[in-house]
């Protein structure tokens, strides 16, 4: 019973799957616009003023933080199992867990810092 309640897996899985859903819904369009369309000139990039205004909206910042945080936990969870299974590295479970979820936490802190100071 204790074992069950103390297991972090359900929470981690919930973060992973929420992240997967958010990433699936939001990443393609953002990546397409900023990663491909604007850089190669398919579309003209928006002005700094416009973007700055959009970013300044607290709602935008909240959404972006949510996206970043959940997407990072999505990565952390999936990547952890990819290392466990895909490369059979389960014997290094502790450093892998630290790397993955630690990385996600650090990423969240950075994201929060950057988004708060816009």
């Amino acid at each position: 019973m204790n074992h069950r309640r103390s297991s972090p897996e359900p929470l981690l899985w919930m973060l992973f799957s929420s992240g997967g859903m958010v990433a699936a819904l939001m990443v393609p369009i953002l990546l397409f616009l900023f990663g491909i369309a604007f850089p190669v000139g398919l579309l003209s990039a928006p002005s700094h003023a416009h973007l700055y205004a959009v970013l300044h909206n607290p709602l935008t910042r909240l959404v972006l933080f949510g996206l970043c945080a959940l997407a990072l936990f999505h990565w952390a969870h999936r990547f952890r199992y990819t290392l466990y299974d895909g490369l059979q590295l389960k014997r290094y479970a502790v450093p892998i867990v630290v790397l993955c979820y630690g990385g996600a936490v650090v990423g969240c802190v950075i994201a929060a810092g950057l988004l708060l100071t816009v």
Binding site: L31, H48, C68, A71, W75, R78, A111, V118
Partner: peptide, 29 residues
């Protein structure tokens, strides 16, 4: 499963963009 690495890359890319926009026009350029 490896797609998650690119999701993470996107987060980094996005945060670089956010940082650039908040640092001003020159930085954005």
């Amino acid at each position: 499963e490896l797609s998650s690495v690119f999701v993470a890359w996107f987060v980094v890319f996005l945060l670089l963009l956010v940082n650039a926009v908040s640092d001003g026009t020159a930085s954005y350029q």
